[in-house]
Design a protein around this nucleic acid. Structure first.
Lengths: 333, 333
DNA sequence: CGTTTTAACTAGCACGTTCTAGTTACTGAG
DNA sequence: CTCAGTAACTAGAACGTGCTAGTTAAAACG
């Protein structure tokens, strides 16, 4: 640290080593143009002074942006896994990941604007709730990749799971076990909501069964409410598909409290295959989203768009798989 | 966007408006020095071109750093809440929050180095697992505030909950209900582990009870294992304090599977009061950490250290409260 | 009319880096 | 000894912004 409390700069190292700034730059970047002994000496002095290159200055100097911006919601475990995947893809390729959290104090618009302000070459939005028009406006300046939501906006690309097919897998699994009365808890305005509903309806029709849809939400509480409403019916369905794992967990609680056993009396199926589905007391069969794949695809698309090696595409649909656990079984007699 | 695909700069706006860059700067920052009509015109043109100030250039120009770096683990809901609190405190005070995720692909050292590289004026570390020596080295250059872990390292300040007193509250609540056989699931190497254990031992001693400690971990799985080990004993304790809510949830599952009812036969108490404790099927009494307070304190300390208005302090201990729910009741006869 | 004041605006440097276009100093060939 | 070739190094200009120190031009004042 220099005397005035500011950070160590290249010039400080250069001065201490008795060389020019340019040479220090050559050494720290490891490019040819310095003798081995000078290299050694400069490296040692840099380490002694605790020199760390200033990323902002590097970025400012660079002509082409080397940063990928990610807007995410910290509270969502799903987002955490995606962020992990994005780091895994971007960093080895030499791209910096710039995060901006979407919180109660810092909304989606603020997050995106902050990423623009950091001159990210592309933006990956994990929680696109803004109007398509607004997103399109951003996309006219910077490539935008939306994850887990089918956004129909000019210039916006999206990556999401094949929710429609996922529900087909779920319905087929249950009908294969012999179920005929399968209820789906829908949440139309959540990400993937419309696709999941469509997939359910199509699959039910194909199997010659009547659709049975209840509108709910994506939280455990709404699942619990839905569970109570099912219990109030004259007869229970033999199987219930929750809108997601949270929702399924809520339904299970309501059923358990009423003394209904899962899967003996009612089979229960979640979607997303998050940690909650794998928890020892749930063990939900669940439609698995391949989060690593989603993150990797979004990253690669962002990089491709940033580098301009590839034009705009509309959508990237990632297949789902069914993780079978102990919450599904043949129906009660 | 300019022709070559790069972003709009101040010079672009200045050229389009037929004024100097300096004047654009004056208008954008809203400082005196421009006539109202020029101001209006420049603002309009800036908006038309989609000009967004370059934060990196601003930061580079600024003498004093205005950014607070935060190293966090995305997968931890606890961290998410803290990040939220940090944004709420820092942004209104004009400080930028720079996030760096700690993931499998991007460890704590990488995260901290990235924050240094971004010339943050202070670092808030939500997941300090590095050796105290390493942390001290970082702290010798940049103020470091560690959250939720009592780190004894030169120059490092920490903010954490009063875990010791929290356990005292837990034990007193249970002993007030009449419990005499209270088991504590300890996790010595987790954040707050040693303090929690010490608090438990002290409180038990003060109440004239014998300590009953089982070593476990901070996950649901380890709680489940611990639950099984308790069931293998000749007689169950009448109350169990989980190391945290996750752990308590695991214990509960093991007990439930063995047909043991909570709280009728065994009282169960969690720590942290996270969402899991409040979930409908758990309803744990839990020692609440005031996350908002923790985040606010860490932020304010970071700012104080950054501004140099205040010297180094060692520790900041935030009080805990007990949230009473339905998992605790008087002991079985 | 000359001088001062003030509002409105501009020129140009600095921040820390990278990169181009040099400038040395040394080696080896003729 | 001269000349080219090369390795090792340096000077200085950008990148986009903020700020200091100006420079106009018009109004105010005596």
């Amino acid at each position: 640290m220099t005397k005035d409390g500011l950070s160590v700069t290249m010039a400080d190292v250069a001065k201490a080593a008795g060389v020019s700034r340019a040479l220090v730059s050559i050494v720290v970047r490891g490019v040819p143009g310095a003798s081995e002994e000078t290299r050694e000496r400069v490296r040692r002095i840099a380490a002694e002074l605790g020199y760390v290159p200033d990323q902002r200055a590097q970025a400012l100097r660079a002509q082409a942006p080397r940063a990928i911006g990610v807007a995410f919601q910290a509270v969502q475990p799903f987002h955490a896994a995606l962020v992990d995947g994005i780091y895994q893809t971007c960093e080895p390729l030499g791209y910096q990941v710039v995060l901006s959290a979407i919180t109660s104090a810092h909304g989606e618009a603020a997050a995106i604007s902050s990423l623009q302000s950091n001159r990210c070459g592309a933006i990956i939005d994990l929680s696109a709730r803004l109007a398509p028009k607004t997103l399109a406006q951003v996309a006219s300046r910077i490539p935008v990749i939306v994850v887990a939501r089918a956004v129909r906006a000019e210039g916006v690309e999206y990556v999401c799971s094949d929710d429609e097919r996922g529900l087909k897998q779920a319905v087929e699994h249950l009908s294969g076990l012999g179920h005929r009365a399968i209820c789906f808890c829908s949440s139309a305005d959540s990400g993937g909501g419309p696709e999941r509903l469509r997939g359910y309806r199509t699959a039910m029709k194909a199997a010659g069964m009547a659709a049975d849809v209840v509108e709910t939400g994506s939280t455990e509480e709404s699942g619990y409410e839905t569970g109570l409403s099912l219990l109030a019916r004259e007869s229970l369905p033999t199987a219930v598909i929750g809108f997601n794992d949270n929702c399924a967990a809520g339904v299970q609680t309501a059923l358990k409290e009423a003394g209904i056993k899962v899967p003996d009396e009612v089979s229960l199926l979640g979607i997303d295959d998050t940690g909650i589905a794998a928890a020892p007391y749930h063990q939900f069969t669940s439609v698995r989203q391949d989060v690593a794949w989603l993150g990797k695809t979004a990253s690669l698309r962002a990089i491709a768009r940033l580098e301009g090696t590839d034009g705009h595409r509309r959508a990237h649909i990632i297949p789902t798989t069914l993780t079978i656990r102990s919450s599904t079984a043949p129906p009660r007699r």
